[in-house]
Simulated assay, not measured.
Amino acid sequence: MNTIQYIKSKLKTTLLAAGMLCAGLYSEAQQKVFKPGQIWPDDKGVHINAHGGGILYQNGKYYWFGEHKVAGDAGNRAMVGVHCYSSTDLYNWKDEGIALSVSDDPKNDIARGCILERPKVVYNKLTKKYVMWFHLELLGKGYAAARAGVATSDRVTGPYTFIKSYRPNAGQMPFYPPFTGQSEKVNCAAPASETDGFFCRDLPGGQMARDMTVFVDDDGKAYHVFSSEENYTLQLAQLTPDYTGHTGKFIRIYIGHQTEAPALFKHNGIYYMIGSGCTGWAPNAARWFSAKSIWGPWVYHGNPCKGADSAITYGGQSTHVLPVAGKKDAFIFMADKWTPKDAIDGRYLWLPISFKGNDIEIDWLDSWDLGVFKK
């Protein structure tokens, strides 16, 4: 070995040792608490990049999927895709890479630079596929497309293959349970309100689908909830058995009130949903609903947040409610604190949900751990 080779070898060994030391120091500093609104480093020490996301629990592990943001003016457009992280304890997250990549083909629905928001992944036991749904806006079209997009994978971490995007339930009228009042039924021959007019306008080509979530019920049936009718109504729509399409059965919720960021969960046989108003990137008061049947009636209950800054959801906006595996009555409210001028710096607000009978409350905590929940 000559002198130059020796120096290179020693340098490589030194750098490797330094890297291992840094990794060791970081591993010893594993998180044991949640700190809402603070920088949340992954296993590489980088702030988690999974905004507007949701979590799937599968085979003893949690998988967090969210929008991968970038620095600069393009931060709120999809320049990379959907990022995936995994965890066994919810505090510490391993970077699993990009689960769904945007396309370099500008004619592709998920072309680089499109708007791809609020990805949610569910597992289909019949097909043994992982199914990802997301809100999609086509490249260069602003928020005019208002589509739902779907992708699938054989592996939870991906890669996911994009299937299609479209507006749901074209040509379909809402499902009306027996309790539905006549005033809630749409008459497209003479729409009774501006909101009904939006519904009727979009009836032939399908309903607008923006902020969204996906929920799988105890019987394995899945539902897609999304802001529709220029965001003035939430629609809850049943998905096909393979979870990659819509059956045509859907209802309208909280008609005539602009609602975004739906997050649906179930507790003791009651369905709950948390959402927000529509104020752009600025935070507003959260709102919650409950129903004894997935098909309603859905009852509006006001703001679940309490205390200081509850009127702005502590600076955040709902994205998902996570049931904690192995614990009773344990649900985590997940929200994003958006920073549109530096989207990559967006923070995560995770807070425990408290049940007061059949009511829910969310209180601010600077720091907390899973010990707040009963086993």
Rank of each mutant, 00 (worst) to 15 (best):
226 F>C: 01
166 Y>G: 00
244 T>L: 07
26 Y>V: 05
134 F>T: 03
342 D>P: 00
148 A>K: 07
316 G>F: 12
123 Y>S: 03
338 W>Y: 12
329 D>Y: 13
186 V>P: 01
22 C>T: 10
312 I>C: 12
301 H>E: 03
79 M>R: 07
282 A>F: 15
235 Q>K: 11
156 V>C: 08
333 F>G: 01
159 P>V: 00
191 P>W: 14
38 Q>Y: 07
372 V>K: 08
166 Y>V: 00
4 I>A: 05
262 P>E: 09
62 Y>L: 05
264 L>T: 08
195 T>I: 02
188 C>M: 11
43 D>L: 11
334 M>T: 04
105 D>Y: 11
69 K>G: 01
2 N>S: 10
180 T>P: 09
173 M>I: 06
84 C>W: 12
82 V>P: 14
224 H>K: 07
13 T>A: 03
229 E>D: 08
175 F>P: 00
126 L>G: 01
112 R>T: 10
259 T>P: 00
123 Y>T: 10
362 I>Y: 06
74 A>M: 08
300 Y>W: 13
56 L>H: 03
300 Y>D: 09
217 D>Y: 09
117 E>R: 04
166 Y>C: 02
242 D>G: 11
280 G>C: 09
308 A>Y: 13
366 D>F: 14
91 Y>V: 01
75 G>H: 13
242 D>I: 12
165 S>A: 12
52 G>R: 12
79 M>D: 10
173 M>A: 02
51 H>S: 01
367 S>K: 13
337 K>F: 03
252 R>D: 04
89 D>R: 11
231 N>F: 14
299 V>S: 03
247 T>M: 02
356 K>F: 07
151 A>N: 14
275 G>Y: 14
241 P>A: 09
233 T>K: 03
162 F>D: 03
63 Y>C: 08
275 G>N: 09
75 G>I: 08
88 T>W: 11
14 T>E: 04
325 A>Q: 15
128 K>I: 07
25 L>M: 15
373 F>I: 02
175 F>L: 09
125 K>A: 14
362 I>F: 08
285 A>L: 04
300 Y>K: 01
338 W>G: 00
67 E>Y: 12
139 L>S: 00
264 L>Y: 05
208 M>R: 10
140 G>E: 10
211 D>S: 02
26 Y>P: 00
91 Y>R: 05
230 E>P: 01
173 M>C: 02
245 G>H: 13
324 V>M: 07
269 G>L: 08
333 F>P: 08
274 I>S: 03
346 G>K: 13
73 D>C: 00
238 Q>I: 00
3 T>R: 11
110 I>F: 05
180 T>A: 12
106 P>A: 06
83 H>Y: 15
20 M>R: 08
57 Y>T: 06
63 Y>W: 11
276 S>T: 12
312 I>V: 13
158 G>P: 15
250 F>V: 02
264 L>N: 05
193 S>G: 05
233 T>Y: 12
128 K>M: 12
354 S>Y: 14
